[in-house]
Computed example of a mutant assay.
Amino acid sequence: MPPRSVREGLVAAPGLALPAGARSRTLTSADGVLLRSAFWKPDGAARGTVCLFHGRVEFIEKYGEVIGDLLARGFAVATLDFRGQGGSQRLLSNPLKGHVRDFAEYRADAEALMRQVVLTDCPSPYFALGHSMSAPVILSLAARQPQWFERLVLVGPMIGLPLARAGFIARGLATGLGGVGFAGAFIPSGTNRVMPLGAFEGNPVTSDPARYAVAAAVITEAPELAIASPTIGWVHAAFRAMTATASPGAPESLRTPTLIMTAGDDRIVDAVASERFARRVRGGGHLLLRGARHEIMMERDEIRDLFWAAFDAFVPGRRELA
């Protein structure tokens, strides 16, 4: 039986625009972790399937509006909650700690979605759309399984951290503390405070108050979907993943056409590092959205319109019978 942290079905909340017709499924990763997933099919013929991968602290319901936008474009959508967050299995006794030992575990989650949902139940061709933390995961997956995705769209990707954020814990400190048994501890100054429940004023993720409120509304209805600060182990894993992603030869060897969109006012990840990465990808492109904060897909309408215009120009799809 799935643990209580794995929810069957999706949560309804005020202001949440979650499309009807979701098919929920509990997946099992290759290493036995239980994962909450869902997929939708559009009315009529499908142009393909967008595999939607989230950032840290996020969950399926938060992307309800994005899912609706993709369905309206004729795409099927498949998505999941990564281990340790949302409705998927938690890895520590404190379920609010954002923890993973290695980002290869997130890749195993993505592989479970592909093998147990996308490749079996969803129309081709397949495209990956990923936000923030999921960028290293998608890039690693595309390198291992280049036949799976026809295009990658990475939004506010976590390829580097700005010095102001990286400074809160040096990589060597994360490695040292993790090596002596503190991997499961909160980062210094980390707490059980759930970020989406914070005040809108001064938030680093979006300038749209209504969209900012969606995540808080869902967590109010289902507090078990929330997580708080990351652990030292998570930070160590993130540093390793970012280093591998931008290592010599890694971007140059990517064969899947990739569009990277960065936010001009991003305070969570380093947009300059993402732009440098995009220049090294042979089939890559880069778009800077000025005035946007980190969560571009949750931004105000004028920014989202630019995002969708770029997405539509880059992701063609083709109509097939569902």
Rank of each mutant, 00 (worst) to 15 (best):
A238F: 02
H54K: 08
M158I: 01
L197S: 13
P188Y: 01
L27W: 02
A174M: 01
Q116H: 13
L35H: 10
V180R: 14
G264K: 01
T243R: 14
F186Y: 12
V153S: 05
D208E: 12
L321C: 08
P14S: 06
A250F: 02
R267I: 04
I169L: 15
F311C: 04
T191P: 08
L16H: 09
P2C: 08
P162D: 05
G181N: 08
G64S: 11
S134K: 05
A210F: 06
V50A: 08
A142G: 11
L27Y: 04
P230R: 11
S37R: 03
F314I: 08
S24I: 05
Y63H: 07
R318Q: 15
R101P: 04
M158K: 00
M261T: 00
L161R: 05
M298C: 06
A241M: 04
M195I: 10
E8W: 11
E275H: 12
L52R: 05
R267G: 06
D312T: 08
R293V: 11
G160C: 04
V77C: 09
A244Y: 07
I260V: 14
R318G: 13
H99M: 08
P125S: 10
V269W: 03
Q145K: 14
V281W: 02
Q85E: 04
R240W: 07
G184N: 04
H131S: 15
P95D: 10
R282N: 12
T28I: 14
P14V: 07
T206W: 08
L91N: 11
T175D: 14
G15R: 00
P136C: 09
S274A: 15
A183W: 06
V214T: 11
T49L: 00
F314E: 07
G198L: 03
F200P: 02
L70N: 01
T28G: 15
T262Q: 01
V281T: 12
T220R: 13
L70D: 00
F75G: 11
V117L: 03
V214Q: 05
E252W: 04
F149V: 02
R211Q: 07
M298V: 04
G160F: 02
G233M: 00
A17R: 14
G233W: 02
A228F: 07
L16D: 07
A183I: 13
